[in-house]
Design a protein around this nucleic acid. Structure first.
Lengths: 109, 109
DNA sequence: ATTATACATCGTAATATTGCGATATAAATA
DNA sequence: TATTTATATCGCAATATTACGATGTATAAT
């Protein structure tokens, strides 16, 4: 084995897992924080700021892009990455609901 | 290679990544939903409800427990799993802040 | 046209994850 | 004490992830 049995879960469960997985790496958290903080597009600055090789950063950016969390547009020689607003808000809402659905310890251990 | 370079990231970035990673699997999302929904402790019902083998479920529960997201207490023969309130609230707040720090598209692509 | 710059992609090695059968453990019951 | 019940752990095979050097590609500058 070694592959997730996606077919036994709902579309929503798989989507949520995919989003979380895309963010579940310190480098990708750092990239997102950097984009959020500067509140504008981020290009190759990342390679110097994080201590990872250019190929590695590029790969991480690709994963965030594939998950729909960021988007990249060509800006001359470099590429400009920023948050994909739609996905961001969707994920924000879904995660918000998910966490808020906890009613606190009641009949619990 | 093949191992994450945790030493170049902050404690917070690594912790957040670890929490997200623990939740970044459809089975573990399903388990958490089940716990949240029934609002009480969950034992072996999961094995019948999800379509995964007992060993697999046990492993997923272990990962959620190791991340501090759920806790398990022995309840006679079976084990009772529920949300770990402290971690849950912490993660809820940190994720909330993280997502809320997005200022919307401004100087962006 | 050539060169420089900024990324992306390929290929590969090291390691991690996923899933499960088999087996171990520990509490409850007969 | 022996057996049942509920869960954990081991060991393995299949696959995925992480990281990076090397190389490809496309735009800008010379």
């Amino acid at each position: 084995m070694g592959l997730t049995k996606t077919e036994i879960f709902t579309e929503e469960q798989n989507q949520m897992a995919a989003w979380l997985k895309a963010m579940a790496h310190p480098a990708r958290i750092a990239i997102l924080q950097r984009i959020l903080q500067s509140n504008t597009c981020i290009c190759g600055d990342l390679v110097e700021e994080l201590g990872l090789a250019q190929a590695t950063i590029s790969q991480h950016l690709k994963e965030l892009k594939n998950a729909g969390i960021i988007q990249g547009t060509i800006e001359g020689v470099s590429i400009c990455y920023c948050i994909e607003p739609k996905t961001w808000k969707l994920l924000q809402n879904q995660l918000g609901d998910f966490f808020a659905s906890y009613q606190g310890e009641q009949n619990c251990c």
